[in-house]
Computed example of a mutant assay.
Amino acid sequence: MKPEIRLTDPRALRGYAHPLRMALVGLLRREGPMTATQASEHLDESVPNCSYHLRQLARYGLAERAEGADARERPWRATAQNTTWDDLSDDPAVRAAANELNAGILDHYVARARTHLAQRAFEPVDWRAVLGFGDALVHVTAAELAELTRRIEALLAEYDERLTDPSTRPAGSRAIGVIQLVVPVEPFSAAEPGEPGPADEPGPAREPGPAAAEGTGR
């Protein structure tokens, strides 16, 4: 599996912006190769529906066939551990498609948070103490925020080996999604003369969730 796949085509961006396709990619990255039938059992979806969307993911390079013991239905596997894309393109079609994908991913995050809240009462006390939501307010420049993000990613990278090698996971460990939302408190206002605006701060849009748990990025 490649470390990363980068989407640049508007069709691929829109093609990935589908709740079931995101869930399927995350499932394959988290659990490894599986058939459409197995995926349907994990996601409580119909086999034909999973089969169709897996084929669509293959069109965009996000999934591919893997070798399997059953010649009648070969399993599918994810092609990369993370997905990235660029939403700073000068092409309006690419920007619109990237925004559509960003909105779909945000909806995915909210749905996962609501699922956790619904099940939170059944979590062991030690897990309830460390799971949940929080936020912090910081006053930083764009360069400082980029450095802060890099440091956070470096901390998370210390656990990367456990993504692909189950033998490195300690007893009692679980797949946990660390969802990163870096958003301004107030809308952007026009910069002072000589100050850089948003377009002067290039960088890839990286899908941070479902993070390590489902492998769609950080």
Rank of each mutant, 00 (worst) to 15 (best):
K2R: 14
K2G: 12
I5R: 15
R6F: 15
T8N: 10
P10D: 08
P10E: 07
R11D: 15
A12T: 13
A12M: 04
A12G: 12
L13Y: 03
R14W: 06
R14L: 11
G15A: 03
G15H: 03
Y16I: 14
A17R: 03
A17V: 06
H18G: 03
L20Q: 00
R21Q: 01
R21F: 00
M22N: 00
M22F: 00
A23R: 04
A23I: 01
L24F: 04
L24S: 03
V25P: 07
V25T: 11
V25H: 05
G26H: 01
G26Y: 02
L27E: 05
L27M: 03
R30M: 08
E31N: 13
G32D: 08
G32E: 07
G32T: 09
P33I: 04
P33V: 04
M34V: 05
M34L: 09
M34S: 07
T35R: 06
T35W: 04
T37L: 14
A39D: 03
H42D: 06
H42A: 05
D44E: 05
D44P: 00
E45F: 09
P48H: 05
P48M: 01
N49D: 06
N49R: 10
C50R: 04
C50N: 05
S51W: 05
Y52H: 14
Y52P: 12
H53W: 11
H53I: 12
H53E: 13
R55F: 13
Q56D: 13
Q56V: 13
L57P: 11
A58W: 10
R59Q: 15
Y60A: 11
G61V: 06
L62F: 08
L62S: 11
E64Y: 08
E64R: 13
E64H: 12
E64I: 07
R65T: 15
R65A: 13
A66N: 02
E67Q: 13
